[in-house]
Amino acid sequence: MKKILLSAAAIFLLSSVAACSQTESEGETGDVEERVAAVEVAKAVEGDLTLERSIFGRTAPNSTTPILLQSPGEVDSLEVENGEQVEEDDIIAKVSTPMGKQNIRAPKDGEVANLKAAEGDSVSNEEPFTLIADLATIKLNFTVTADVHKLIAVDKKMTVTIENEQYEATITSVSTMPDDTGLYPVEAKVDNEDRAILPGMVAKLSVPEQQIKDAIIVPTAAINEEDDESFVYVVKDNQAIKQAITVVETQSAETAIEGDIQIGDSVIVTGQLTLSDGVQVNVVKGE
C-alpha cells in the first residue's frame, strides 16, 4: 500500500513539474518581441545619370627651363636648394670660371629642381646646372583609344582626380596621330597655386560618354542581387518590402533603374543584407 501511495505521489510531482515547465516556456515565448531591423534609407529621385570613362595618366611640370653655364668652373656658393621657389633674375649660384666670377640667375619664376652640385664642386657647361620648373600649373599626360579620342576636344573642361582630390582640368592638346603603342596622346592642365600636386602623381580623367535622362536614380548601395534578379527594399509602414527592379545603367555611387518604384520612395541602403520581405524595420538614418 505504501509503495502504491509513493508511486502515485511521484507521478503527481512529475506531472506538476512538467506542467510548470510548459507554462514557463509558453510565458517566455509570449514575451519574445518580433525582430526589428535597424536600417538606413535614401530617397529615390528623378534625374539624369552621366556615364563616364576613367582615363589614367601622370602629372608633370607645366614647363622645365634648364640653366646652362657659359663655361665650366667651380661653385663658390649656392644661394638656393632643390624645391625652393625663385623669381626671375634671382641668384642661383656664384661660379668661378676662366672668364671670371659669374652670377647664375633664374631665367623665370619657378621651383629649383635637379640641382646636384655642391659648393666647391667643379661643374661643366655641357649639361644643365639646374632646372627651373613651373609647378604653378601642372601638365597632365594621357593616352586614349580612338573611341575615347572622339569624346575629347581642345579647351574642353573635365574633372580630374589626383590623390583623392578633384580638380577642373582644361584639355590643351589632342593628337591626331597615334604614338608607338597605337594610342593618341592627350594633354591637359590644372591650376596648382597651393603646390598640392607634385610631378609624377597618378591622375584620373573622367570622360563623359553617355547621359540617361529623366531616370529613377537610387544609390548603388541599395541594389541587391539574388538568383539573377535585381531588387531593392522599400520602407512602407515600417516594413521592408522587396521590390524587383531592372538596372538600366550603374555607376559607383548611383544607379538608374526601372520598376514599380516611385519618386520619393525610401529605399534601404544599409542593413538590407539580413532582411526578408515584410520584416519590421526601424529607420535610424536617412528620413
Rank of each mutant, 00 (worst) to 15 (best):
E229L: 10
D155F: 02
I212L: 13
E74A: 12
M177C: 02
V190F: 12
V41M: 11
V86W: 09
V148K: 03
Q211Y: 00
F129I: 09
I162G: 03
K242L: 13
V41H: 07
S175C: 01
V123A: 11
K108L: 13
S175G: 05
S122W: 03
V75E: 02
A253N: 01
V279R: 06
K150G: 03
A118D: 15
G278K: 10
L131M: 10
Q210W: 04
S230D: 11
G83L: 06
S230L: 06
A136I: 00
E168I: 11
G27K: 06
D155M: 05
E40D: 08
A169W: 04
I55W: 11
E46Q: 05
F12C: 15
V95W: 08
I104N: 04
S63R: 03
T176F: 12
E287W: 03
I152G: 14
V75Q: 00
S71R: 15
A60H: 03
Q239V: 03
D89S: 07
V95S: 08
A37K: 06
A106Q: 11
I223T: 12
A19M: 04
A18K: 01
D134W: 00
P66H: 02
P107K: 06
D48M: 09
I171T: 10
I245C: 04
S15K: 01
A93Q: 14
G182D: 07
V234W: 11
L198K: 13
L68F: 15
F56Q: 13
K189M: 05
T29K: 07
G200K: 05
E84T: 08
V95K: 11
L115M: 12
T159A: 01
V234C: 14
D179W: 12
V45M: 06
N141K: 13
T176Y: 14
L69I: 02
S25G: 07
Q280N: 09
I257F: 04
R35C: 00
A38E: 10
F231H: 09
S230H: 14
A37C: 04
Q166D: 15
V32F: 06
Q102Y: 10
E24C: 09
I263N: 04
T181D: 13
S63F: 01
T161Y: 00
P72S: 10
T159W: 00
K213L: 15
N282K: 07
D228F: 11
M177A: 12
A244P: 14
I162Y: 02
G30K: 12
F142P: 13
E168G: 07
Y184S: 04
I91F: 10
V95D: 09
V36G: 06
V284W: 04
A106N: 08
S124H: 00
